[in-house]
Amino acid sequence: MAIAEQLQEFCGERRRDLVRFANLQLRDEALAEDVVQETLLAALQGSDAFSGRASVKTWLYSILKHKIVDTLRSRRREVPLSGMSNADDEDEGFETLFDRRGFWATEHKPHRWADPEDSLEQQQFWQVFELCLDRLPARTARVFMMRELLGLETAEICQELAMAMTNCWVILHRARMGLRLCLEETWFTR
């Protein structure tokens, strides 16, 4: 399939996927639309540069990720991270998962998830997944998505957000803990 044709697919129905991806991180639908628009435009203009080694999807997402990083950077100047709602410093209820000695409380001990790979193919799973991501406190979500969706290294994130490395690790740990717990309660129920 010619690259123009493949890009057209992303201007149509698969465009929604790109917008949702951007919105997860920007939490601003209009801004997400703009960023995706710019991405598609950049892709069309730069389609000669597309090497064909990666899939069009991978290529588009890599452009989109750069645009999101740029947007986050420029917005940070307007809304400093420290000003974001910050439930992060509070205990998110993870303490009750463990007993006093720090071992899993019996009722919270992780159990095997049934067919997790199979879930990846189900649209419903992704709806639940996004709801769970949305439930993370704003600052936690920001750091986590920079790491996992934008694929930045922890050192870059800390530098970008002017945070100590250990603080970054704590936040990432809480994000994973929260996401896991949410999935277990809503999707991988016992």
Binding site: Y61, P110, R112, W113, P116, L120, W126, F129, E148, L149
Partner: peptide, 18 residues
């Protein structure tokens, strides 16, 4: 640990990684 690995796979597949 298995679940952490799964979360990473899920997120990578979500962000266009092949």
């Amino acid at each position: 640990r298995q679940q952490m690995a799964f979360l990473r796979r899920a997120l990578r597949s979500r962000s266009g990684g092949d």
